[in-house]
Nucleic acid binder design. Structure first.
Lengths: 402, 402
DNA sequence: AACCTTTGTCAATCAACTTAACAAACGACG
DNA sequence: CGTCGTTTGTTAAGTTGATTGACAAAGGTT
């Protein structure tokens, strides 16, 4: 039974703890507010929160103003309860970062271009991870886990990279296993889009709990879906391939095996390719957007076409799962308002949902360069969802990871 | 907090009851097996099951053979614990049916074509419902609820029919409210595809718990998605419009507002329309399939085209949510093996998932004429998911519904 | 200063599952 | 045929976690 309902008392307590933590994570809350939102009694909340404070997960940080009556005591996460590491590997290189319990980036270490042999690259990564874990600033703080993000597809369950294009060095590498000797069992792998989706849910536009689809438009098109508490990622974390949604079943064949994937019409390189003939001087996305802003008619038209293609794929997702919003991120964040508006217009013109509600399209408020933060966020997310027992372990001493 | 986790003891008990019931629903089980599958102890199971037997929901029906040791006592639902009514309204007419707790159809009453005025039609429906509820065979059995299925789109939450094409008589009717005086508060509305999906999950190919998408191909194309315990239906039950998945974003405009919906390529009338020029003598789906079986090349080609269109839409869904199977139903069940094979071939040719696993395509094992059963199934499903407290009510006496 | 309100805590109680022991039922094997 | 080992189901005591209800703390209002 894969059910996640509480069967006995202790599991109930764990779930209630989780529920409280996920509410505190959204921002400062008082016990009495938690009582209302969780459905538990004030007394019950008091006991659980007491335990969480004892453990060092929560702190009282102040009071909320009140109009008559005792002031509510605000609770927040205690950021230095522990830290998580993030590792992001891209085609260009890699980067390691450290975040605290709140997901705030403490610092990052760019690794630059990696060695061209697999073992040397792994060795270098391990070196940096070891050095980071041994860092004095992290002494006496709990190590909560290591999150890794790479281009997809990946096999989340196995912790292995499958076969991302232009990423042959890493094909088939069981990354979580490889790094277990450095970071123990709390190593989690996800593809870039999934990592960004979790980050967006925890720290971005999805913070207050609605459903949305995150669209990452760069060299490829990735996406993630958040609905309720769930981040969809399929049985092996291989799903969510919104970029390979077919929007023209008779269209050209994509390398993924389908025909007419959105990616062929709307990814950055494909858009630039469409411009090559009439606007050969445009070489980058930013050039393209600048020209569109400047009023170049061809660029405007191409942008509109891109928006139509993206909107078609998005409308399919939105209609099928009845999502409430769309969030955009990736390279297209550069002066992204233009594309955002175009997509919003197209989606709300064509989506069936238009009869029922307006679908807002947002630009991500998270920094595009927050890939490391998002990677570490995977581990933070796992920590809070209770998928790991990293919390139960002993403190991480100065002697390096065990 | 919309969370469904148990917060306190009594909710925990309810959820454990539900968990046990949903396992028993799949087929005869022994207490000890329930203990393993639920994670509870034998003792805990014994107590809960004892209560369920006391209430009349379960009965012991026999023993399972064993190799040494006491024989396990098999538990099953007690079918005559209560009954649910099903009402299905189509463009052609309506029908009322009665099912027992196990979902078995006891009998059905065709209403034939309905009066052309809304109030007269409602009146007739109410009459038949009242007569059914007062029926002697149902005396001293609990009334569990009334499930209604109609063409979509409907607003599940509001219990209202929205604006299905060719269904103007019913546009905007708040059916659940209208029938409340006959059937109380346990009235549930869903569109045909949703009802069939629930039935397929409970009694058909989805019985043993995997995820799947059900595709209903008739005059329109409907669908339902089952993943885990959940039947997707969106925030207002308006979703799951797989039939209006766009598979050609530049294609002809559909009345739904999108372009190139699958429905335009693969619904029964649209397929027949495509044949009209070269095969004018083919007037019905069955004719078409018979010709294809007989080897008619044009029909074969058209069938293959239809399969390609359906496969494109299905591949999008499957890839996005990583579903495990496809189930087909509707008019296409007639000698459906031909189309089934074609779809299975296309899906597994093009779906990205082909690298990971084969996606089986099944024909529904439920009778196409089981619409009433499926409608009543909505109420049964609600009963078991605890969305209704109909069970707490007093027995339904001979004096008619209160 | 008296009064009302709200927040947070504490002790007693209650509800639900677990633990542990045992009875029931059955096959196997001398 | 009776004993042994095994598995199933039940029962009573024990544990755990939330609720109940009373109360202290803290703050505004008049």
């Amino acid at each position: 039974m894969t059910n996640r309902t509480a069967q006995n008392g202790s599991q109930m307590r764990l779930l209630n703890r989780m529920m409280i933590l996920s509410l505190v994570r959204r921002g400062p809350v008082a016990r009495s507010e938690l009582a209302v939102e969780t459905g538990l009694t004030r007394a019950g909340i008091s006991v659980i929160v007491g335990g969480l404070i004892e453990e060092g997960l929560l702190v009282e940080t102040g009071f909320r103003g009140s109009a008559g009556g005792r002031k509510p005591v605000l609770l927040e996460l205690r950021p230095d309860y522990g830290f998580a590491l993030g590792l992001t590997i891209s085609r260009a290189g890699a980067e390691v970062g450290v975040v605290n319990l709140k997901g705030e980036l403490l610092w990052q270490t760019p690794l630059g271009a990696l060695p061209l042999s697999r073992s040397a690259a792994l060795l270098k990564i391990k070196q940096v991870l070891r050095r980071t874990l041994a860092s004095r600033r992290l002494a006496n703080h709990r190590f909560l886990g290591l999150g890794i993000s790479t281009p997809g597809p990946v096999d989340v369950m196995a912790g292995a990279i499958l076969n991302p294009p232009n990423f042959e060095l890493w094909h088939g590498v069981r990354l979580c296993d490889e790094l277990a000797d450095v970071a123990g069992r709390s190593v989690f792998l996800a593809n870039n889009s999934q990592a960004l989706t979790m980050a967006e849910k925890a720290y971005g536009k999805g913070r207050d709990g609605g459903s949305f689809v995150l669209l990452v438009v760069e060299n490829g098109i990735g996406a993630g879906i958040v609905r309720g508490e769930e981040v969809f990622s399929g049985w092996r974390g291989f799903g969510n391939e919104v970029g390979h949604t077919s929007i023209d079943y008779q269209g050209p064949e994509c390398e993924c095996g389908l025909r007419g994937c959105v990616e062929l019409y709307a990814s950055v390189p494909n858009v630039l390719r469409a411009l090559r003939r009439s606007r050969p001087q445009i070489a980058t996305w930013n050039d393209f957007i600048d020209s569109a802003h400047a009023g170049d008619a061809v660029c405007r038209r191409v942008l509109e076409e891109q928006a139509r293609a993206l909107a078609a794929a998005l409308a399919n997702v939105i209609n099928m799962l009845e999502l409430e919003a769309i969030v955009l991120t990736g390279d297209i964040l550069y002066r992204g308002e233009l594309l955002r508006q175009a997509i919003e217009r197209q989606v709300n013109l064509t989506a069936m949902n238009r009869r029922l509600r307006h679908i807002p399209v947002h630009l991500s408020s998270l920094d595009k360069h927050s890939a490391v933060m998002a990677a570490a966020g995977i581990a933070i997310e796992k920590f809070f969802s209770g998928d790991t027992q990293a919390t139960a372990g002993p403190r991480h001493g100065t002697g390096g990871p065990r």
